[in-house]
Design a protein around this nucleic acid. Structure first.
Lengths: 113, 113
DNA sequence: GTAAGTAGTTACCTTTGGGTGAGTACACTT
DNA sequence: AAGTGTACTCACCCAAAGGTAACTACTTAC
C-alpha cells in the first residue's frame, strides 16, 4: 500500500474515534450549551427546548463516561446537580468553533439560496 | 431573554445545520476519503472497507444533494463515475482537520490510558 | 395538604439507520 | 459464450436511536 493510502486509512480511523464521541442528535448541542457556562439539568433542558429528560439524562451519562463533562452534586437545600466541561471537554472548543463557522457558511451558501 | 442566552440559542441552531450534513456513520469518512483526491465508486468502497454499496450509494446522493460533492460521469469505454468535492465541500477542510486533531488528542487522553 | 420545583427513571412504542444478499445492466476480455 | 469489472439497485430484516407519557423521591412554599 502506498504511503498516501496509509495516511488516508489513518485519518479514517481517527475520524471514527471522534465520531463515537459526538455522534447523535444531542451530544454536540449539550456540549455547546455547557460552553456557555456550567449548567444544571433543568437549565440545559431549557436551552435545548425539544430534548426529553430521558435523552438528556442518557446523553449526559455517555458524555461523562467519555470524560467530556463532569457531574457535581451540591448538597444545598434543594439538592442541585451541576454539569461542567472537563479539561478534555474544553479541548473541543476549536472543533466546536469550526462546526459553528461552517454551519454559518453552509446556511449562507445553501439554505439562503 | 439575555443577550448571552440569545448567543447560545443561535449557536445551537447553527450546530443543527452542520449536524444535518455530517450526521451518520459514513458521511465524514466519505468526505475524508475524497479529500485525498477524486475517487471512483469502487475506490471509495476500498478506502472504507466495511461500507456496503447500498450505503455508499445512498450517502453519496445525500452529499450531492447538499452540494458537498459532485458526481461526474466519464463516457470512457467502461463507463466510470468520478466523485469530487465541490468548492463548498472544500470549505470543510478546517472542520475535518479539527475533527482529526481532536481524535488524536482523545485517543491519547482516553483510549491509551 | 396541595402545589411547584429539583433531577431524574421507567415502560412502551415508532422511526430510522444500517446490514445482508442477491440481482441488474453495460462493456471488455478470452 | 463465459467470465470479469464497473456502478450500482432492490427487497428484506434487525437493532439502535429517539419520542411519549407517566411516575418517583425529595424539599420548600402557600
Amino acid at each position: 500500500m502506498s504511503q498516501k493510502e496509509d495516511v488516508c486509512q489513518y485519518r479514517l480511523m481517527i475520524a471514527r474515534d471522534t465520531l463515537e464521541v459526538i455522534q447523535g442528535k444531542w451530544r454536540l448541542p449539550i456540549i455547546i450549551s455547557l460552553t456557555h457556562g456550567n449548567k444544571r439539568f433543568g437549565e440545559i433542558q431549557r436551552d435545548i427546548s425539544d430534548i426529553s429528560p430521558k435523552m438528556l439524562s442518557q446523553e449526559l451519562k455517555a458524555l461523562e463516561t467519555n470524560k467530556i463533562i463532569i457531574r457535581t452534586l451540591h448538597d444545598s437545600m434543594p439538592v442541585t446537580v451541576e454539569y461542567s466541561l472537563t479539561s478534555l471537554g474544553l479541548t473541543m472548543k476549536k472543533l466546536l468553533d469550526e462546526i459553528l463557522d461552517w454551519g454559518v457558511l453552509f446556511r449562507k451558501e445553501i439554505l439562503e439560496k
